[in-house]
Design a protein around this nucleic acid. Structure first.
Lengths: 340, 340
DNA sequence: ATGATGGTTGGTATCGTTGTCAATGGGGAC
DNA sequence: GTCCCCATTGACAACGATACCAACCATCAT
């Protein structure tokens, strides 16, 4: 006799207690709780009654251990400070909850080592699948995930090579279209403002693609300013001031995101720079704030909620063995509004 | 013989494999992996070597099942759309990760039934503890949590009666102080704008406390407008327009949060209402956006990151059996800036 | 009547780890 | 030298559920 002997721990109601009360076998209780097929109404009734009176809650740990798979879905994002991730998460959760799954959140803080650690920690729970942000994972993470026999969805961008499936939009294409349109609108002297040392990588990809297209169109980027601080309205304002001091002749600035762009806009209103006459301002993401500005912000609307929703849907489809494509392009929308 | 017979599933490296390779017993591997006390250096070395070469990852499901407790902490919030929760979450995660714990996220969408369901789902994983937002939980949730033998921390506000521990600030006190200060500044005709049907409940508490104090000071609230839509800059602008149409004589508006207040500010700049000369604008939360406005937004800075951080710290302290208080007041800061 | 069929239920072993107790061995006190 | 103690390691039996197989029973065709 090991553990606590016959001390009859009252603390947890198990499947056995339910089975005893209902006068059926353990396994039958298990089947009813899982909505397994081929169960008579009588049995189902007896079991649910007993379960309810005892207040039984299945122990997921035991179930998942034996079944070697849980209803957990690992969701790994780089940050919670960046507002796009909560939105994406909301989309993911909406689908998962509806299908009886649960999101387990991991935050990497843009750190590759941490990402590996987080993925490891998650896999220790035998999740049903993994959703992670970006296609720029470390090789260690890629191989680790490739070894698992579970679906893996990479969301946000589709420009890299996916491990299994990528769901998102092409940041490269978005940047190209922004460049083309701005040149078509007559802008010639372009500036670019980024922050947070260009994390995540796709913001860097956007900048590079923007520069590439501008060069191709014969109007190469005039000035570039990448701040080290995290993106914020304040930093956007400061950076705009700085870049204009060094390059007063700029006629358009493309910002890494809307927060920075709104900061740029505020700087202009405050210092008397007329937008968009003297300076065009273009953001990225199309968040609510930008569209609520006195002049609506010109930006690119990214499908954040949809990316989450679709990522989760596709993950579920994978889990059910349905065939899926390798890349899902959810597109984006260029919002030519009042600031450019 | 049941399950797959001798098919030698190669898919998972277990503690047994490590033990065999290291030439020690299973339990010793377990101890090393858990950093248990009284382990010789030789053993530790042998085991870690073997574990590394095999790429062993402990199976948390099995461990938690046997130990009847996991390194999971259930974190239950009403929403991800409201920017305060990602911030709080960040604070929580920062502490948990550092101590080897993992946050399991549940979103209730301000729905009491869903909250109960989420709590149930979480408890099925034998979490080490539970952190939830607000003190306004359903009785079903309260009794369910009281039955568990795990620490429970309620964060965000401390005005209600906590289940075990509440960490946050007094929204009642904040509202009182705002009212007192605004009256002291000379404002007399007050308006209040809320949204999202006053979810969560503490926003309602703030309004009621605000009204209470105003009445006490002899300048009862003149106008109140609670929108049904979720808070946003846009809604704030619209609501401000509406309330001013019905009550052009208002000289100060207190908003349920900064997003709404910024909307109000935009409406004023657009329609030529001078802030704060003609109209005082006061937000709540003290988010970055407000402080980056051309006129800094008058608001109340709430310790969002700290609330998360402290909640997690205190939960850990509870888990280690250390005594804790019932209420932790992290305070707030009244930011009298440019808009009132 | 007999066997086949298929829906329904039960028995047993096991998932991978850890709690409990027991065994071992070396060092210090007497 | 003997005894005791503590540090270290191991054996065994669980944790609570599910996979697999087997058994049962009624229905139906032969």
């Amino acid at each position: 006799m090991t553990d606590k002997p016959n001390a009859k721990r009252m603390d947890r109601v198990t499947i056995k207690d339910v089975a005893r009360l209902a006068g059926v076998s353990d396994i039958s209780v298990s089947r009813v709780m899982r909505n397994a097929p081929n169960i008579s109404d009588g049995l189902r009734e007896k079991v649910t009654l007993a379960a309810d009176t005892l207040g039984y809650t299945p122990n997921r740990l035991a179930g998942a251990l034996k079944a070697r798979s849980s209803n957990l879905v690992a969701v790994i994002v780089p940050s919670m400070s960046n507002a796009v991730f909560p939105e994406v998460l909301d989309g993911i959760d909406s689908v998962l909850v509806q299908n009886g799954y649960q999101a387990a959140l991991g935050i990497t803080h843009y750190d590759k080592d941490r990402e590996l650690q987080v993925v490891r920690d998650m896999l220790a729970w035998s999740p049903m699948g993994v959703i992670l942000a970006g296609t720029d994972q470390d090789d260690r993470v890629r191989t680790l995930l490739e070894r698992q026999a579970i679906p893996v969805v990479q969301m946000m961008d589709i420009d890299g090579a996916p491990i299994q499936v990528a769901v998102g939009m092409s940041h490269r294409k978005a940047a190209h279209i922004v460049a083309e349109r701005l040149v078509a609108e007559g802008y010639r002297k372009f500036g670019y403002i980024g922050a947070w040392g260009e994390r995540p990588d796709r913001s860097k990809l956007r900048r590079l693609s923007f520069e590439e297209k501008l060069t191709e169109l014969g109007h190469p980027l005039t000035a570039r300013l990448i701040c080290n601080e995290n993106s914020s309205v304040h930093i956007g304002a400061r950076a705009t001031k700085d870049i204009l001091k060094r390059h007063p002749d700029l006629d358009c600035i493309f910002f890494a995101n809307d927060d920075l762009a709104v900061g740029g806009y505020f700087h202009c209103t405050k210092s008397g720079v007329s937008v968009p006459r003297q300076l065009g301002i273009v953001g990225f993401n199309g968040i609510e704030l930008g569209q609520a500005l006195p002049d609506r912000l010109t930006s690119v609307r990214t499908p954040r909620f949809s990316m989450g929703k679709e990522s989760a849907s596709i993950l579920l489809r994978c889990a059910q063995g349905e065939p899926v494509d390798q890349i899902y392009d959810l597109g984006f929308e260029l919002l030519m509004e009042g600031t450019a």
